[in-house]
C-alpha cells in the first residue's frame, strides 16, 4: 500500500508543487516567458473556450425549457440557467477544455524538451529550467483559467438570453434581474477561487508529467496523454472539494 505507484505519484507531485513555491517567487523573474505563455496558453484558447461556453449556455437553455414549461416555471429559466452557468458549468467546461488543449500541450512540449536533452542544455548554460519552463507555465495557467472562465460565463449567459428569446420573450433587464436577484457574492467568490485552483492543477500536472518524462518518443505520448487524463480527473475532484468547502463556509 505504502509503496504504491499512485502514492509515489502524489508524493512526487507534492514535492514538485513545493519546489514551485520555493523557487517561483525568488528572482530572477521570467516576465518575458510568462507573458509569452499567457499568450500561448490563454489568448490562443479564447476561441475554443468562448465557443464551448456559448454552445453550452444555448443547449442548456433549450433543453431545460420544455420541462420548465411543463411545470409552469418558465420565468425561472434565466435564474436556473444563469446560476448553473456561473456556479458550475462555465468553470468546469473551461477547466476541461483547458486541460485538454493546454495540459496536453504542456505535457508534450516539456517531455519533448526533456527527451531531446534541451532541458539539460538550458541547465548547463546556467539557466534554471524549472523557473524558465515550469514556473512560467504554472503561473500562466493559474492566471488564465479564471480569465477564460469569465469569458465562458459571459458568452454562456449571452447564449442563454438568446435561448430564452428563441421561443419566448424576456427583456435583457428582466433576464439580468432574475439572475442577479438570486446570485450571491459567495457564488462568484467560489467560482473564481476554484478556477484558480483548476488552473494551478492543470499547470502542475502538465508540467510534472512532461518534466520527468523518460523513454524517448514513447514517453512524450504518454506524458501528454496522462497529463490530460489526470488533470481532467483532478478538476472534478477539486470541484467536489469546492462544493464541500463552500457548504462549510456557508457560501451556497
Amino acid at each position: 500500500m505504502f509503496n504504491s505507484p499512485f502514492l509515489a505519484e502524489i508524493g512526487g507531485m507534492t514535492r514538485f508543487a513545493g519546489r514551485f513555491f520555493r523557487e517561483g517567487f525568488r528572482p530572477r523573474y521570467e516576465w518575458r516567458e510568462l507573458l509569452s505563455q499567457c499568450y500561448v496558453l490563454g489568448y490562443q484558447s479564447l476561441t475554443l473556450v468562448g465557443v464551448t461556453g456559448f454552445i453550452m449556455g444555448l443547449v442548456l437553455t433549450l433543453r431545460l425549457r420544455p420541462t420548465m414549461v411543463q411545470f409552469g416555471a418558465e420565468s425561472w429559466i434565466p435564474t436556473m440557467v444563469g446560476l448553473t452557468i456561473i456556479r458550475e458549468m462555465a468553470p468546469i467546461i473551461t477547466a476541461l477544455m483547458v486541460a485538454g488543449k493546454v495540459g496536453s500541450s504542456i505535457g508534450a512540449e516539456l517531455s519533448s524538451l526533456r527527451v531531446t536533452e534541451q532541458i539539460d542544455a538550458m541547465e548547463v548554460s546556467g539557466t534554471n529550467p524549472f523557473k524558465y519552463l515550469v514556473v512560467t507555465r504554472m503561473l500562466a495557467t493559474t492566471l488564465m483559467v479564471p480569465i477564460l472562465n469569465l469569458l465562458a460565463t459571459g458568452l454562456g449567459l449571452a447564449a442563454a438570453y438568446l435561448g430564452v428569446n428563441l421561443k419566448g420573450g424576456t427583456s435583457l433587464a428582466l433576464f439580468t434581474h432574475n439572475i442577479l436577484a438570486r446570485l450571491t457574492f459567495g457564488d462568484l467568490l467560489s467560482a473564481v477561487v476554484k478556477t484558480v485552483f483548476f488552473g494551478f492543477a492543470i499547470g502542475l500536472i502538465g508540467c510534472y508529467k512532461g518534466y520527468y518524462a523518460t523513454n524517448g518518443t514513447e514517453g512524450v505520448g504518454r506524458a501528454a496523454n496522462s497529463a490530460v487524463v489526470m488533470a481532467s480527473m483532478m478538476v472534478f475532484i477539486l470541484d467536489l472539494l469546492a462544493v464541500q468547502v463552500s457548504n462549510l463556509l456557508g457560501l451556497n
Binding site: T116, E117, Q118, D120, V124, S125, G126
Partner: peptide, 18 residues
Amino acid sequence: DELRTKVGFLFQSNALYD
C-alpha cells in the same frame, strides 16, 4: 550556474532549441 557559464557542453544530440 555561474560555474557553468565557464564550462561549455556539446551534447551528443546537439540539444538545439528546436
